[in-house]
């Protein structure tokens, strides 16, 4: 059983570490800021290029998004462009927890501070849960905050109809179901990889492999060959959650006292 007071102490310490670690803090703050502002910059460019839309483009987009039939052509282009940014709200909860988890564990390996922690009555489940929550939460909050900003900006700059486009069930399923599931897998991958390497950047590069399928979603959507709808996102969220739970179990085995003290080098 996990004790709340101990879990809170671990999460609090991890947050303190994030706030005081400039590299880590920047990796939490900068990507959401860029990803929230990038679509707005792109809309300015698209405003001048809408007239050069290929002839079969409208049919292709409407085939995947029949709910956009009421949109004039220029708004259809904008809606399609906006749709491509959905994936950024999946990358954020994947990348940020990975960065935090790897920095946290590799940092403790380098300073050998875990032995002192393990010599307290803390249970390894509590330690793992605390580190996982502290890694997952900033990624999710950053993604959701950036999404909120993007929805607001879309409503203000592009009008209420575009705000509706980015709050369709597809977006909600992706941002609020698949995002956290990717975050879970990301944290688990961070823990597993960090136990085997001694450098946070190496751990991130190896752990970053889990983001490749997410990038794949961007590609298939951009070429219009396959439309990922809300049920598909929920299905992927379920698969990723199962994968995440499985990986967390492996991570928990790796995170045992004996393993940390005798095998982590």
């Amino acid at each position: 059983m996990i004790r709340g007071s101990i879990l809170a102490a671990i999460v609090r310490r991890e947050f303190l570490e994030i706030v005081r670690n400039r590299v880590l803090l920047l990796s939490v703050i900068v990507p959401p800021v860029i990803l929230a502002t990038l679509p707005i910059l792109l809309f300015g460019v698209l405003g001048t290029t809408a007239s050069r839309v290929p002839p079969n483009f409208v049919e292709m987009v409407l085939a995947g998004h029949p709910q956009w039939r009421d949109l004039p052509e220029d708004q259809l282009v904008t809606a399609f462009a906006l749709q491509q940014f959905l994936v950024t709200y999946l990358i954020l909860p994947g990348y940020i927890p990975l960065a935090i988890a790897t920095y946290s564990i590799v940092g403790e390996k380098q300073s050998r501070s875990l032995e002192a922690v393990l010599a307290t009555p803390v249970r390894t489940g509590e330690l793992l849960a605390g580190k996982s929550i502290a890694a997952l939460l900033p990624g999710l909050l950053a993604a959701w905050l950036a999404y909120g900003v993007m929805v607001s900006v879309a409503g203000l700059v592009l009008g209420a109809r575009m705000a509706c486009v980015v709050t369709e069930s597809t977006w909600l399923a992706a941002v609020f179901a698949l995002g956290p599931a990717i975050g879970l897998v990301s944290v688990a991958a961070g823990i597993i990889v960090s136990s085997r390497v001694n450098d946070a950047r190496t751990a991130q590069q190896i752990g970053g492999v889990i983001l490749l399928p997410v990038i794949g979603i961007v590609v298939v959507q951009a070429v219009g060959s396959f439309v990922v709808d809300a049920p598909a996102y929920l299905g992927m969220a379920a698969i990723m959650t199962i994968l995440g739970v499985g990986l967390i179990r492996i991570g928990a085995a790796i995170f045992g006292r004996e393993s940390i003290l005798t095998r982590w080098k």
Binding site: R3, S5, I6, A8, A9, I10, R12, R13, L16, E17, R20, N21, S111, R112, S113, L114, E115, A116, V117, A119, T120, P121, V122
Partner: peptide, 28 residues
């Protein structure tokens, strides 16, 4: 038990009080 490991193994981005406070919380 209280254990002093070979290296001090402190959290170096935390103050002396914060280090002790964290371990005090772990010991409830």
């Amino acid at each position: 038990i209280g254990l002093l490991t070979e290296t001090p193994a402190l959290y170096e981005r935390m103050t002396a009080v914060q280090n002790l406070d964290f371990f005090g919380r772990l010991h409830q």
